[in-house]
Amino acid sequence: MNKYILLVFSLITFCGFSQDKKTKEKENEFTATIINAQTDEPMPSVHIVNLNQVKGTITDQEGKFTIPAVANDTLYLTYLGFKSQKIKITNDMLKFKDTKITLTELAFALEEVVVKPYQLTGFLEIDAKNVSLNDSYQYAISGLNTGYEAGNKNPSAVTKVLGAILNPADLLRNLFGKKPAQMRKLRQIKEDDRIRDLLAAKFDRETLTELLQLEKVDIEDILNNCNYSKSFIQTANDLQILDAISGCYEEYKGLNRKK
């Protein structure tokens, strides 16, 4: 009989705990609707990132979204063709649950593009030489798992690679030692599929700079000193840039552990 009473009591306690947990989770979520400022129409597929908690989501067909958030968190909203926007969460926004956020459409002025056609001869061997190719080269040394992309094939490129290999600790310490908080976010960003999908479709570095709280020039400096070519830095999508920075940072941590 005592065992039966204990079992019932345990079930009641568990149910109460589960209910409290669900209530708490709802209290730590923010729900809103995003609309087009020009048309007042709801906007589906808008990307939302909580910069503080490093969580991401997108709006549904009615422009609605729900994301983990507490007061003073900052949300970063992006949508192709619209001005990106940052929203700071307040207690009132969490309490009333009927927040509407507007995004403003951007007007793009297309620059004149000059197309220079190749003079084709009809002979593959000749025409192939007239087409510009990516001239970035990657170097590797037997026994090391890391490849070094040094840009153009010239003597200085090889020297740059050897310098990074022979004295990597000083180089990476200067890059990452001053920004520990930003670099700790790398793993969180990579674990969120919504954010990864967003970064894979972007090339402007805007969301990446907001997430890591770095300037674009800082990102370029990191990649340059981690021996990535100018071609890669200019053409890679934001997810590839994130993975490159992350790989370089993991190398930095590995070198520090050996000290």
Rank of each mutant, 00 (worst) to 15 (best):
M43W: 07
E210D: 11
L255F: 03
Y4E: 14
P42E: 02
Q19H: 10
Y252M: 05
E111A: 11
Q138S: 11
G177L: 05
G56E: 08
G163W: 06
D193N: 13
N227S: 12
L208S: 08
V8R: 11
Y79V: 05
K64S: 08
T102Q: 08
V114S: 05
D40E: 14
I219C: 03
A69I: 05
E29G: 04
F176Q: 05
M1C: 10
S231Y: 13
T78W: 04
N134V: 13
P117R: 11
K190W: 00
I48K: 06
N174E: 15
N225P: 08
E220W: 05
I34Y: 02
E125W: 08
K230M: 07
R196L: 06
D204S: 14
Y252N: 06
G56N: 01
K116W: 04
E215D: 15
E215M: 06
V70Q: 14
L103I: 05
T104G: 06
N130A: 15
A157V: 04
K21V: 10
D218T: 09
K86G: 02
K55Y: 06
Y252D: 02
F30M: 02
L77G: 01
I48F: 08
L51K: 01
D238S: 08
G163S: 09
M183N: 10
K230S: 11
L208E: 04
E206K: 04
C226G: 08
Y76K: 11
G63D: 05
L75E: 01
T59A: 10
F17P: 03
T90D: 06
E251L: 14
S156R: 07
I34Q: 09
H47W: 09
C15R: 05
I67K: 03
G147I: 07
F9A: 15
I189S: 13
I67S: 03
N237C: 01
A181Y: 09
N72W: 03
E29N: 11
G122S: 00
D197I: 09
V70E: 14
E206F: 01
I58T: 15
L124K: 15
R257V: 07
P168N: 00
V131C: 02
A128I: 12
V70M: 08
G122K: 00
A140P: 01
F65N: 07
A37Y: 13
V113Q: 14
T102P: 04
K160T: 13
I58W: 02
I58Q: 15
T31H: 03
N237D: 14
A128K: 14
I141W: 04
E220Q: 13
V158W: 02
L110G: 12
C226E: 15
V46T: 07
L162M: 13
N256Q: 14
T33N: 10
L242A: 08
V46S: 05
G151N: 09
V115A: 06
E149M: 09
A169F: 10
Q119W: 03
